[in-house]
Amino acid sequence: MDISVVIPLYDEVESLPELTSWIARVMDEHRFSYEIVLVDDGSTDGSWDMIVRLKDQNPAIKGIKFRRNYGKSAALNTGFEATKGNVVITMDADLQDSPDEIPELYRRIKEEGYDLISGWKAKRYDPLSKTIPTKLFNAATRKMSGINNLHDFNCGLKAYRGAVVKNIEVYGEMHRYIPVLAKWAGFKKIGEQVVEHRARKYGKTKFGMSRFINGFLDLLSIFFVGKFGKRPMHFFGSMGVLSFFTGLIISIWILAEKLYLIAHHRAYRDVTEMPLFYIAITAIIVGSQLFLTGFVAELIARNGTDRNKYQIEEVV
């Protein structure tokens, strides 16, 4: 199969007939073999009934229904598991992404050898309350991930080589960081394509301002897990050793100073009256705790089911 189109949705009953017919028209015009995987993330507006009717009209449509709302990341991850296409396209269900972009996205994956192409909505129709935080979010993500050629990590319109979606796990709010997940999984040829951003035709956005806070926390999680997931002692242990020896050196210095003053019969303050004493004790305790945290995390990592799971690109 050439293309799998994965569409997570929540209360988008009005847009589904137009979207699926548009996708089918594009696929037929370019003679692609395809499937449309619609993942209903606990909709309450009749979206699932619409999916069932649309499937009766077009057998290329597949529907997956969640019992409740789990979020976009869960919908994407489940959709990825169900795909069979050599190239996987994701898009939102609100008609703000144009299916006319699909042929060029497919061509770049197949002919130019990209692992992932992320859409960039250079001209947006969103309010400033959404575009300004998005720009800050993208700048922070570029800085932390090292993927400097992407302007818009959060664009729902993306294209993937089939192997990419089968080797990443999307959860929490991680759908914003799929290019980062792909990079950590070893898929390094990541590109960008300017795509059309259309004004929302039906309904209203389902995302609030809390997504930026949750998204930033997930970015920190990705950075830590990707860098230290299989060697947590390198992170916690190094910080713990640094803190412990800092406290130890301060303690030795305080003790040496006191002994020096005693030996020369000079006045000295009691150790417990010195602020440095408490700083030293705190540093030693924190260092010990960090080291023990790293040790316990290392034990968990070494006994995890994926401790020796690595990405293998090819075997001959």
Score class of each variant (00 low, 15 high):
257 E>T: 08
262 I>G: 01
203 G>Y: 02
261 L>R: 10
285 I>Q: 01
285 I>V: 15
278 Y>M: 03
187 F>A: 04
268 Y>E: 08
225 V>Q: 09
214 N>V: 02
221 S>N: 08
204 K>F: 12
214 N>E: 15
261 L>F: 04
205 T>R: 13
257 E>C: 02
207 F>R: 15
274 M>N: 12
235 F>A: 06
212 F>E: 07
241 V>E: 01
232 P>T: 06
246 T>R: 03
288 S>Y: 09
214 N>Q: 11
233 M>A: 05
251 S>L: 15
195 V>M: 01
263 A>Q: 05
191 G>D: 05
256 A>Q: 09
200 R>Q: 13
233 M>V: 04
190 I>E: 01
199 A>M: 11
254 I>P: 02
186 G>K: 03
227 K>R: 14
247 G>T: 00
274 M>K: 09
189 K>F: 06
256 A>S: 11
283 A>H: 03
192 E>S: 13
217 L>Y: 13
275 P>L: 04
268 Y>M: 06
221 S>D: 08
264 H>W: 05
214 N>R: 14
263 A>G: 11
251 S>F: 14
200 R>L: 15
263 A>E: 08
271 V>A: 11
199 A>G: 09
264 H>K: 12
234 H>G: 07
223 F>Q: 07
239 M>N: 14
206 K>N: 13
233 M>R: 03
270 D>I: 10
273 E>S: 13
239 M>V: 12
217 L>K: 14
214 N>A: 14
247 G>Q: 01
250 I>Q: 05
289 Q>S: 14
288 S>C: 12
272 T>F: 10
265 H>M: 06
185 A>P: 00
183 K>E: 10
227 K>A: 10
279 I>V: 15
190 I>H: 03
255 L>M: 08
215 G>Y: 04
258 K>I: 11
280 A>W: 06
193 Q>G: 04
248 L>Q: 03
262 I>V: 12
235 F>M: 03
184 W>S: 11
236 F>H: 06
245 F>H: 00
236 F>E: 05
230 K>H: 11
236 F>V: 00
224 F>R: 12
274 M>A: 06
254 I>Q: 09
256 A>G: 04
247 G>P: 01
253 W>Q: 10
272 T>Q: 10
265 H>R: 10
229 G>A: 00
222 I>Y: 05
256 A>W: 06
220 L>F: 09
276 L>W: 08
276 L>N: 07
258 K>A: 10
271 V>N: 02
253 W>G: 05
246 T>K: 04
225 V>N: 07
213 I>E: 10
281 I>L: 14
248 L>N: 02
189 K>N: 14
208 G>W: 15
264 H>L: 09
235 F>L: 05
203 G>E: 03
209 M>G: 12
277 F>A: 12
214 N>F: 15
240 G>T: 04
187 F>V: 02
239 M>A: 15
212 F>Q: 08
263 A>D: 07
268 Y>W: 13
191 G>L: 07
197 H>F: 12
258 K>E: 12
222 I>V: 13
249 I>E: 06
